[in-house]
Amino acid sequence: MTAPLLTVDQLTKRFGGFVALDQVSLQVAQGERLGLIGPNGSGKSTLVNCISGTVPISSGRVLLDRERIDRLPPHRRAQLGLVRSFQLPRPFGSLTIADNLKVAMLYAGKPSSDSIHDLLALLGLEDKAGRLPRELTQIEMRKLELARAMAANPRLLIVDEVMAGLSHAEVDEIVELLLRLNEAGVTIVMIEHIMRAVMAFSQRLVCIVAGRKVADGDPREVTGDAHVLKAYLGE
């Protein structure tokens, strides 16, 4: 097996006396589709924030392609190909849809106006290129979030609950998109509560409960794991 694209090694994050993440280790292989699950408040989003650099880690290491990145500011990590979407869509409100993508492309990706158009077309947003984000519907907003992440030309894309609140058909549409993106060579970590989507998408599942990794492996085995069941369903 080749070296993993992302390595999280003994990562601990404390907020004051509260341990949000306790010595979490995980690896993501090049080209892999990893699902990250866990109950609300278990530390999934904190883990994403630690990996992408939005919050500093307390101890441990994060490596991208064997390079330590845990001391780098978030923008450097994005430029290295580590891109994340936000749980609640956070578009640049005063910029048009096309310009939202352009920011990501200029600073983290490979700029060209063709690819902005292609990306918007891929996500069915081409008619909205000149519109402002506030004119979009919820699903379009999620798609914008994804399109912008793709515009940053990611090697590793972390999608943080991009499907919450979407309809059945819309969830399928997004999963389909992510699968295509993965086929194009992007490694993807998906954080999601919608199990149907996670199961359809993931090759491997990691489950985090109360800041600790309790399971890591084949999706069917992980969802049958005693710890995982206990965390979701109680004793």
Partner: peptide, 21 residues
């Protein structure tokens, strides 16, 4: 474009490669 990103949402700008500082 980088400045506009800072104005609209600094944290997100940073996450998309804008060297905000």
């Amino acid at each position: 474009f980088g400045l506009a990103a800072i104005r609209d949402d600094e944290l997100v700008g940073e996450a998309y490669g804008v060297p905000t500082l």
